[in-house]
Design a protein around this nucleic acid. Structure first.
Lengths: 230, 230
DNA sequence: CTAGTTTAATTGGTCAACCAATAATATTAT
DNA sequence: ATAATATTATTGGTTGACCAATTAAACTAG
């Protein structure tokens, strides 16, 4: 799951729903202070822990800001937009595999494109080292981890920490999905070659070649996900 | 912050650091159970809450999995990869504005491209409605929220919930950045026209036109961020 | 000695009491 | 009456105790 908040805990979503309602019927104005944690907990007959979790989740998405010993305030945006945001948050759960893979493909392609522009000698050296370790472990269980590291180095070279973090979040989800589906159980020799092409493209700063190489590299996973969906 | 976890709480990062060390010196093997929350808390002279927060963060990134009344286990990937992941997590903080904007540009362009393929009549109707409300509030403070909603509808039409959630996470960060920088204080008439072009492109399913329109639409923000960086 | 059962210890999840900092109120001095 | 100060109440942050489920250990029957 991409969301940190596994909504099996119905108490937390109960709090979110209540805040949503308060915004809806005007009891909670945008930009104003929302009720104290204790008060809200008592009103909803729920532990304060759950209220705090809900607040933390809302703060993560920039909807509320909590001030120590003072209180929490909701963002000063119009209530329609607020409702939409909270509604989206509550619906975040169990992303479908295809969307995860599709997004990964997009981010990896952009990461490698940026890496072509921004990678320095040290990055390329790390990349070659990661690839070497990937080769060395090609017939061992460590292969998947080494592949993961290879892609992480590319993300690092993109000099965009946001993309890097997003890939960091997505990748484990994808992994957990396709260990159950028995994907990539047998290593393909083409992968080794594809990695090398990507390295060469980055080193020669030819972004179009690098991007197409990355697309090709992830194409098997992409079509696999597409088939799963249908 | 993109990260839910504001690392001003040094106790939590202390726990993360300790887990990192345990993996480093081999006390904690990949795939094995990690110490009980209480035990770890006592060892580090830290509240169990902080240990739980650290575990939750690690679970968010798929590094550990917590089982109720049983314990938590770390992912079964090689310790080198594990260290890299944890190290990345600890470094997540305060993304630079340019990376945020750059990533938004990428995601918005992909979202609108996918929307061209996948939007149904209902999506296009919502899009037109959102644009109408944007126009109606063009000279009011609500303009920024209506703009936000407009883009959210596009993300919705892309039928990719992962992209949608990522934009959901990024956008508030960007907003908070450029309210302090006094960006977009005065509305530009071109924005209205640009929105219309995007709608037309989606309706006529011409993805290339939609993507370039989106790029143009966000170009002012992009160059602004680029200047801030330099 | 082994298999099944019962008991005790350990675990993550939850809750309620406590802490220090803040905000609101009451009090006092001018 | 007003401003400055002292007091009280409220707040989020933190801690330790309790709960039910799980696991490990001890025990007993065969």
């Amino acid at each position: 799951m991409l969301s940190k908040f596994n909504h099996k805990e119905n108490s937390t979503v109960k709090v979110l729903q209540h805040i949503y309602d308060m915004i809806n019927d005007g009891r909670l104005k945008p930009g104003s202070k929302l009720p104290a944690e204790r008060k809200l907990a008592q009103e909803l007959s729920v532990g304060r822990t759950h209220v705090r979790n809900a607040f933390a989740e809302l703060e993560f998405y920039g909807i509320v800001k909590t001030y120590p010993q003072s209180g929490s305030v909701v963002a000063a945006i119009h209530h329609n937009a607020l409702q939409g945001l909270i509604s989206d948050i509550m619906s975040i759960e169990n992303y479908d595999f295809f969307s995860l893979v599709e997004t990964r493909l997009i981010l990896e392609m952009e990461a490698v494109r940026l890496a072509c522009e921004r990678a320095d000698d040290k990055d390329i050296e790390s990349l070659k080292l990661a690839h070497k370790e990937y080769i060395d472990n090609f017939h061992t269980p460590r292969r998947v981890e080494k592949d993961m590291i290879f892609h992480r180095v590319i993300a690092q070279a993109s000099r965009n920490d946001v993309i890097k973090s997003m890939l960091l979040i997505i990748t484990p989800d994808i992994l957990s999905h396709y260990v159950t589906k028995d994907f990539c159980s047998t290593p393909l020799p083409t992968d080794k070659h594809e990695h090398q092409i990507i390295i060469d493209a980055i080193e020669s700063r030819s972004s179009s070649k690098a991007v197409s190489a990355m697309r090709l590299h992830l194409d098997r996973l992409y079509t696999f996900a597409k088939r799963q969906k249908a």
